[in-house]
Structures are given as structure tokens and as C-alpha cells.
């Protein structure tokens, strides 16, 4: 992996990354698809991640939006391709077009709306049956997953055909509206475990000034996803 860079000690890593940016490394492609009902904040989440912005008044996504983001993680350049899909019922039939071939799927629901959580379940059902015949029979850590557990997780994942398996990440969005919460963190965590998904609660809206907690959970989520995707795609 990452041929062309001289291997080095940890303190040299930053320098190596710079070399990578200057064209030394192999660019990896990571495909991520965002799924979920309308109005749960898929686009906001992506915009927060990609652009670092939040706008309260955005129009519904039509069809799907495609974004790319380059990053350097662990000496490797990664080009993350994000498909942000529309949540409306009428676009449902188009979804397979986007999650086919994806490395990871973010399943987003609104913690203040139980229906959106139930909708996730139908997504997962459809998704697994469409993309992978083989059920996943390994354990995946969920909300308690730490950075150190990820390599293990990927190692297990790799025993299967990675091409056809999507890594699922369950995301409860709008955690800044905890007072109106309808889906408890525990319920979601249990379900995430059931479907072998990672689980996070995030807020695309909350900013660091007002509530650092949400920001840090967002960061945690992003860095997890980055590493995760990276390690997966490293081997592809």
C-alpha cells in the first residue's frame, strides 16, 4: 500500500503526507452513500462535513447529489465520493443505482421522529438483499467502537467479499434537539448492533461555540468514517 513514499517513523509522518500531496502516493477511491427519509438532514450533514457550513433553509435534494472530498489519512490520499440521495418516496426506486458498489452507507434518521427510524429498517432490509446474498456473520462493534477497534473490524470484514458488502453506519441526526427526542440512544444502539452497523448521534446544525459536545461527536463520526473507509479501500 501507498507505494512510492519512503517508510518512516511516526515523527516523519507529517512530512510524508506533504510529499504525498505532491503526487507521491496512490489515490484511493472510497464510495459512500447517504440514505434516509426526507428531512432528516442528510444534505446538511454532508454539507457540514464537506464545506463546514450549515444553512437552515435548504431545498430538498432532487434525485441525488454527488460530492467528492480529498483527504490524506495515514500517508494515503483518499478521494471520498459521496452520493447524497433524496429521501422522498418517489426517488426510492432510484436508490440502488447509488448504493450499488458503495463501500459504506450512512443510514440517517432524525432522533425527533420515530418514523424516520422505522424507515431505516426498511432501507436495511432492501439493501442487504440487493447487494449481498451472504448474511454478515461476524460481530461488529457499535457505538462503543474506538479507533483501536477498527482495524480488527476491517480485518473481519475483509474475510468476506468486500466488494459486495456495505459497511453500515447508523446516524441519529439533530441531536441538538434532544428535548424533543423520540428515538432513544439505547434503542438505536441495540438496533445498530443487530444490523452490524456503527452508531453515532450527530448534529449538523450545532456549532462548536454553542455546544462542543455535538461538534466533537461530529468530528468523531467523521474521523471514524474516514479511517474506516480508508482501511477498507486500502485493500481494494
Amino acid at each position: 500500500m501507498a507505494s512510492g513514499s519512503p517508510s518512516g517513523a511516526a515523527q516523519q509522518q507529517q512530512q510524508q503526507q506533504q510529499q504525498q500531496q505532491q503526487g507521491g502516493g496512490r489515490a484511493l477511491e472510497a464510495k459512500v452513500v447517504i440514505l434516509g427519509s426526507q428531512g432528516v438532514g442528510k444534505t446538511s450533514l454532508v454539507l457540514r462535513y464537506v464545506q463546514g457550513t450549515y444553512a437552515a433553509d435548504i431545498t430538498s435534494t432532487i434525485g441525488a447529489s454527488f460530492m467528492t472530498r480529498k483527504m490524506t489519512v495515514d500517508r494515503c490520499q483518499v478521494r471520498m465520493q459521496i452520493w447524497d440521495t433524496a429521501g422522498q418516496e418517489r426517488f426510492r426506486s432510484m436508490a440502488p443505482m447509488y448504493y450499488r458498489g458503495a463501500n459504506a452507507a450512512l443510514l440517517v434518521y432524525d432522533i425527533t421522529d420515530e418514523q424516520t427510524f422505522d424507515d431505516i429498517k426498511s432501507w436495511v432490509k432492501g439493501e442487504r438483499s440487493n447487494t449481498s446474498e451472504r448474511p454478515l456473520d461476524f460481530e461488529m462493534p457499535c457505538s462503543h467502537c474506538t479507533l483501536s477497534s477498527i482495524p480488527l473490524l476491517v480485518a473481519i470484514e475483509l474475510q468476506h467479499n468486500v466488494d459486495s458488502d456495505i459497511v453500515l453506519v447508523l446516524v441519529g441526526n439533530k441531536s441538538d434537539m434532544a428535548s424533543q427526542r423520540k428515538v432513544s440512544g439505547e434503542t438505536a444502539a441495540i438496533y445498530a448492533e443487530e444490523i452490524n452497523a456503527l452508531f453515532f448521534e450527530t448534529s449538523a446544525k450545532a456549532d462548536s461555540g454553542r455546544s462542543r459536545v455535538f461538534k466533537s461527536s461530529l468530528i468523531a463520526f467523521c474521523s471514524h468514517a474516514q479511517l474506516f473507509v480508508l482501511l477498507l479501500t486500502n485493500v481494494l
Binding site: 444534505t43 454539507l47 464537506v50 464545506q51 444553512a55 433553509d57 435548504i58 431545498t59 430538498s60 435534494t61 432532487i62 434525485g63 441525488a64 447529489s65 454527488f66 460530492m67 447524497d84 426517488f91 432510484m94
Partner: peptide
């Protein structure tokens, strides 16, 4: 009317 085209490439029916 759409705000969602500005940040991405959109693929719309």
C-alpha cells in the same frame, strides 16, 4: 429555486 445544486453535481430525473 433550488439551493442544493450549488455545492455538488446533481443527478436529477
Amino acid at each position: 429555486a433550488s439551493t442544493s445544486f450549488s455545492a455538488a453535481e446533481s443527478w436529477i430525473p
